[in-house]
């Protein structure tokens, strides 16, 4: 096909990076990060997802159309979660979040 063939070397490096990031996120779990705990864990998960999307799922070489499909999905997921949290957190159901 028109998509370039990703060399095996790249695939192995990506896999190594993914395993390294897994070790990193478990290491971060044992560190005292306070309020940054969850954001750091999610950032590392996001980085792993990007690596898989770009190289294993070939998004790096895909058409803009394919990328827009994914971005649209993520946008709606964001609207789903942010829109709901916007409502749930402003009703005074959680301590200290009453309007």
């Amino acid at each position: 096909m028109s998509e370039p063939i990703i060399p095996t070397r790249t695939l192995f490096i990506v896999c190594g990076a993914l395993l390294l990031l897994t070790a990193l996120t478990i290491g971060a779990y044992f560190m005292d990060l306070g309020i940054l705990h969850t954001p750091v864990a999610l950032a590392i998960a996001g980085a792993k997802a990007v690596l898989i999307l770009l190289f294993f799922m070939h998004l790096r070489y895909s058409s803009g159309l394919t990328r827009i499909v994914l971005l649209a999905g993520l946008l709606w997921l964001g609207i789903l979660i942010l829109g709901t949290m916007d409502d749930a957190l402003t009703r005074g159901w959680v301590l200290g979040t009453a309007p």
Binding site: L74, W76, T84, A88, V94
Partner: peptide
């Protein structure tokens, strides 16, 4: 296939949403 995967993302998204709400609570 990508369009299908995005619908799958919405399926899991509902679970992630429930998780987010109850973890906040």
């Amino acid at each position: 296939m990508w369009i299908f995967l995005v619908t799958e993302l919405m399926l899991f998204g509902a679970l992630f949403l429930m998780y987010t709400v109850y973890r906040a609570f």
